[in-house]
Simulated assay, not measured.
Amino acid sequence: MEKTVRVRFAPSPTGFLHLGGARTSLFNWAYARKMGGVFILRIEDTDVARSTNESVEVILDSLRWLGFNWDEGPEVDGPYKPYYQSMRLPLYQEQIQKLLQTGKAYRCFCTAEELAERREKAMAEGKNWRYDRKCLQLSPTEVETRLNQGASSVVRFLIPEGETSFIDMLRGDVTFNNVELDDFVLLKSDGMPTYNFACVVDDAQMKITHVIRGDDHISNTPRQVLLYKALGFPVPQYAHIPMILGKDKTRLSKRHGSPSVTYYRDKGYLPDAMVNYLARLSWASGEEEKEIFTRQEIIERFSLDQVSKHSAVFDLDKLNWMNSVYIREANQSVLVQILIEILIREQIIKPD
């Protein structure tokens, strides 16, 4: 019996939901619906300094506007709650202890200043800098003594020798030499987990079967695969989708038109038009002449096999054209309601 497909969209609440994140959530949502699976929303809010409740609300509002209803996550809960990483700290501590006890991780007491000094020395000598494992040499007694004295520390993962491979659903076999990887930090000195560690623990415990995310995460994947194996968790399937670029072939930013979903909502773009446009960035159904797809058509046709490995180019003119098609076909009462919502948000009129 095949496992139920379980995918997730896991934004960090440090700002608006940008178009790249919106397309990632769309591909996860469409894949889950196509496969009869589960779409999970998880808030990765371990960056205490930058995460805000306002950003959480903006992200939730943006996903609701796009119509990407989640099956598990904030406001709906589910069997693996809580779905905020900041509320899952005991789970991370449990797995950290497992890695420490099995010798797959170790305490590091090096200060930022010490690391900077050794890094600069290595670079001055023309060497590539990777953590030199100074603290790996500490005995258990020395570690315990320093902790009892209140010394600040992080926990690092001990990278094994050899190579790490995984199969990307878009690229095929991908292999990294472990020499290229650093003994990266799992737990920061303030007790908060790093992205790679929390991501693996949560994906494993939430039984994620497919990780569909941007290709800027490819370099994180070998580290995460090693963590899955060290913790004894099954490794999910990966699909790294290409980035969205501006017409000048640089990463999409405000100079190409605002990259946030709420900007387009507030300018009167229709959610169906935005979903249709985002779906067409790097995904092709094989129907060359067809540009307009309903949500149901996207779900029925969607396949990761048809997602390109090459970066998509954001074309505001095409989005405007697509939006005009949807506006012409929309029911007048729907357009009136959208206009009222915009006027209320702009505080031009008051809600009833």
Results as ranks from 00 to 15, higher is better:
R118T: 12
M206I: 08
E161Y: 09
G172D: 07
R280M: 15
Y106C: 03
A22T: 09
M169T: 08
L147S: 03
D248N: 15
A105R: 05
I327N: 11
E346P: 00
W65I: 01
I218C: 06
E2S: 14
I299L: 13
L100W: 05
G103V: 10
L319Q: 07
I349D: 00
C110N: 13
Y264I: 01
E120N: 11
R213Q: 13
M35P: 09
R33T: 13
E114A: 12
G126A: 03
E341G: 02
A239P: 13
K188V: 02
S165W: 04
V313R: 09
K127F: 06
R88H: 07
D183H: 01
T209M: 06
T111D: 06
K134S: 02
A30V: 07
P234I: 05
V48H: 07
Y326D: 10
L227M: 10
V313S: 08
R119Y: 08
P13L: 11
T145V: 12
D190N: 13
V334W: 10
K121T: 12
T209I: 04
I241L: 08
E125M: 12
Y269M: 06
G150E: 03
N320G: 00
E57K: 15
Y31N: 15
Q296I: 07
I344N: 04
V201L: 03
E117D: 15
L26V: 03
W129S: 04
V313Y: 09
D202K: 14
F197N: 04
E44W: 07
G126D: 01
L19I: 05
L316K: 14
G67F: 13
M87A: 14
V38C: 11
I159D: 06
I298E: 08
T4V: 14
S152Q: 12
A284N: 10
K188H: 09
I342W: 00
R88S: 12
E54D: 14
R345V: 03
L115A: 12
S333N: 11
K254I: 05
I299R: 06
K127Q: 15
L138C: 03
E117L: 15
F166K: 10
V235A: 09
R64G: 00
N69P: 00
V261P: 00
T175F: 05
T194F: 08
E44S: 06
V179Q: 14
C108V: 01
Q97F: 00
M35W: 02
G232V: 04
H18F: 08
M243Y: 04
L19C: 06
P234N: 05
V275S: 08
E142H: 02
Y83H: 03
G15M: 02
N128Q: 14
G162E: 02
L335S: 01
K267F: 02
Q347L: 06
Y131H: 01
L138W: 03
